[in-house]
Computed example of a mutant assay.
Amino acid sequence: DIRSCLNTLQFLNKKREALNISGFDSQVIGRKDMSKSILDVWKQVLQKKKLKRAEMADCNMSGDKDIGSLFSLISNRGDYDVTMDGIHENFLKLSYHDPMLHKTVKCLDVLGVSDYLTQYVYRTQHMSLQAYQPPIAITISRIVAQVEKPNIEWPKALQRCRTMLLVKKDTLKTWQNRMSPLISRHLSVESFVGDIASPFLHILSPLNLRPMHLGF
């Protein structure tokens, strides 16, 4: 924005240095809007460039350059939770060839590693470990990225799961509160689900009960 540009120019002018293009490029200040949007990140992860003939002759060097560029893009953006959620919900929409689902399983395994890493970071507050998230996204990109433009949508599944989880926890808490205090005070929500709710649901819907179709 204009205000940021003016502040940057004023700061550099007070340093009494000659202003030129190379000087601006070497400055750290005034770069708060340099990172791309999260949609651009998803697009570049899920879409690979179509190599020209000259680039195909030196494929290894071009691939290393693309990996470095993608790593910088993901790292500068941050928001690793949103980045990985978007990749998780959008990569299955790609038209990649995978008749035996080997690529799909590998991507889901890698995303599982990302989830474990996120949980560990939140539990221990070792934020430096988030630096391993960009390589995970790059791994998925190398497996399933296609030349065709991906149809990207904002991830919604996580929010739906969180909402459903809160509703079910409230329901379980209501059931637990209606029990006798002599019993409920010795039961946590987790033990209530494992020791009481699960067998109770099994009794309500036995395995030998078959659904009936009534035709009219």
Rank of each mutant, 00 (worst) to 15 (best):
M56F: 01
M164C: 08
I140S: 02
F11S: 14
L214C: 04
R160D: 00
N90L: 05
Q130M: 15
A54K: 14
V45H: 01
L46G: 00
F71V: 07
S62R: 09
Q47P: 01
H213C: 07
S62H: 11
G23K: 15
G86Q: 03
R210I: 11
N13D: 07
K49F: 03
I143P: 02
F91W: 08
Q10W: 04
S184E: 05
D33Y: 14
I196L: 14
P135N: 00
N76S: 11
D1V: 06
R185C: 02
L172K: 04
I203L: 12
Q27I: 07
K173T: 14
K106Q: 13
C5K: 15
D195R: 06
S22K: 15
Y122K: 14
H97K: 14
P135Q: 03
F200D: 02
E190V: 06
I74V: 12
K36H: 12
V41T: 05
G63T: 11
V189Y: 05
I183D: 03
Y96G: 01
S205M: 02
W42A: 01
N76E: 12
G68V: 02
T171N: 06
V113M: 04
T171R: 14
I38E: 03
Q119I: 09
D64S: 06
P99D: 03
K149T: 12
Y80P: 00
M127A: 04
F71M: 09
S95D: 12
D58F: 09
T118A: 11
V41Y: 10
I203R: 08
N7H: 09
S95R: 07
R142A: 01
S22E: 15
D66T: 06
P135S: 02
E55V: 01
N208M: 05
V189C: 02
D1K: 01
K15W: 01
G78P: 04
